[in-house]
């Protein structure tokens, strides 16, 4: 199944014949194991084991009387009917549906513009837009939090000069949008660089052929470049699914600015954190973590499935 995914992502997975041809005449199987062993050990110990442990913990419950007891799927039935968790999942799902298309559209536009040859100092634009990626989420959130604020926030100052009332960025109506803006600010440049790198690999004779046919820059972008970017866009989309659903730092820090707007269940990850460290409900927190991982894998595969199917029909 996973090997199949590589194919869909457009990677050149080595065919069996390929591998055989390469290894003909020499069998270095044992050395091969030695090369991959350190990685695989760390992988098993720090990725597979914690996942398995979470799965194991999720089968137990702490009771006031009787201590920790086997609960079967009790935690899962609780989770699937837990309104706080469901709201959190719904919220990040909504976030994904609105923020990601905006972010990828800006990244695509910027990558095409920089690649078009119609800009002066294209390199400057590329670096400038990419820079926020190097800023930690904590700093980005603190910074935007100050900009949003009413005391010395930039928007409050500007609104004051124009004698308008500033938008209430930290109110419950605006909060998700305010967080979406921070995430867009952080990650547009990263996506742009991936798309731009993919654009550089499009064979240039295609452009020349298009130019001979009288296609302008916009027409070339639409008919040649965007179709060629499909695999790269898919990679961006998958990474965005993973990023959106595990949203944590931004809401966790914004919580201090607006404690009445962001509760401990604002996103599923924040909920898991609250459960484990405020509520001491370790088993239920492990269940939430495990379910969140499962949701992300399922949504990622669903996105892959939908997008690759549409491209074939």
């Amino acid at each position: 199944m996973s090997v199949n995914t590589t194919d869909r992502l457009g990677a050149r997975a080595p065919s069996r014949a390929d591998v055989r041809r390469r290894a003909r005449g020499v069998s270095h199987a044992r050395t091969g194991y030695l090369f991959v062993a350190p990685f695989m050990l760390v992988f098993l110990g720090l990725l597979v084991l914690p996942l398995a442990y979470a799965a194991y913990l999720s089968l137990f419950q702490e009771r006031l009387i009787g201590g920790t007891v086997f609960a079967g799927l009790g935690n899962y039935t609780r989770a699937l009917t837990d309104p706080r968790l469901l709201h959190g999942v719904g919220r990040v799902g909504l976030f994904f549906l609105i923020q990601v298309p905006i972010m990828l559209a800006i990244a695509l536009f910027a990558a095409l513009a920089i690649d078009s040859g119609l800009l002066r100092v294209a390199k400057g634009f590329r670096l400038g837009i990419f820079l926020p990626y190097a800023v930690p989420a904590v700093v980005a959130t603190l910074m935007w939090g100050y900009l949003y604020g009413q005391d010395f926030g930039l928007f409050a100052q500007l609104a004051d000069k124009l004698s308008l009332s500033p938008p209430k960025f930290l109110s419950s109506d605006w909060m998700l949008g305010s967080i979406a803006n921070i995430v867009t600010w952080e990650f547009t440049g990263y996506n742009m660089i991936i798309l731009y790198a993919a654009l550089r690999a499009v064979p240039h004779d295609l452009y020349e052929a298009a130019a001979v046919d009288g296609a302008g820059a916009i027409r070339t972008a639409w008919s040649i470049k965007i179709p060629a970017l499909r695999p790269a866009l898919l990679v961006c989309l998958i990474f965005s699914v993973i990023g959106s659903f595990q949203l944590f730092s931004e809401p966790q820090l914004m919580q201090r600015l607006a404690p009445s707007v962001i509760d401990g269940g604002y996103t599923p990850n924040l909920y898991g954190y609250t459960l484990a460290f405020t509520g001491q409900e370790v088993n239920y927190a492990a269940t939430v973590s495990f379910l969140l991982g499962a949701v992300i894998v399922v949504v990622s595969y669903a996105v892959l499935f939908v997008t690759t199917r549409r491209s074939r029909s």
């Binding site: 199944m1 996973s2 090997v3 995914t5 590589t6 591998v19 055989r20 390469r22 290894a23 069998s27 270095h28 199987a29 044992r30 050395t31 091969g32 194991y33 090369f35 991959v36 990685f39 695989m40 992988f43 720090l46 990725l47 914690p50 996942l51 442990y53 979470a54 913990l57 998958i238 993973i242 659903f245 595990q246 944590f248 990850n269 898991g272 954190y273 484990a276 370790v282 927190a285 492990a286 973590s289 495990f290 969140l292 991982g293 992300i296 894998v297 990622s300 595969y301």
Partner: peptide, 30 residues
């Protein structure tokens, strides 16, 4: 290198790209 389990192991790791690191954080902490 060609060895038994090459495709299976790299496929397993590839599938793990989608496992979110933060979902691992709490069980790893425990």
């Amino acid at each position: 290198y060609r060895f038994r389990g090459n495709a299976a192991m790299s496929g397993l790791v590839l599938g793990a790209i989608m496992v979110p690191t933060t979902a691992l954080a709490i069980p790893t902490y425990l």
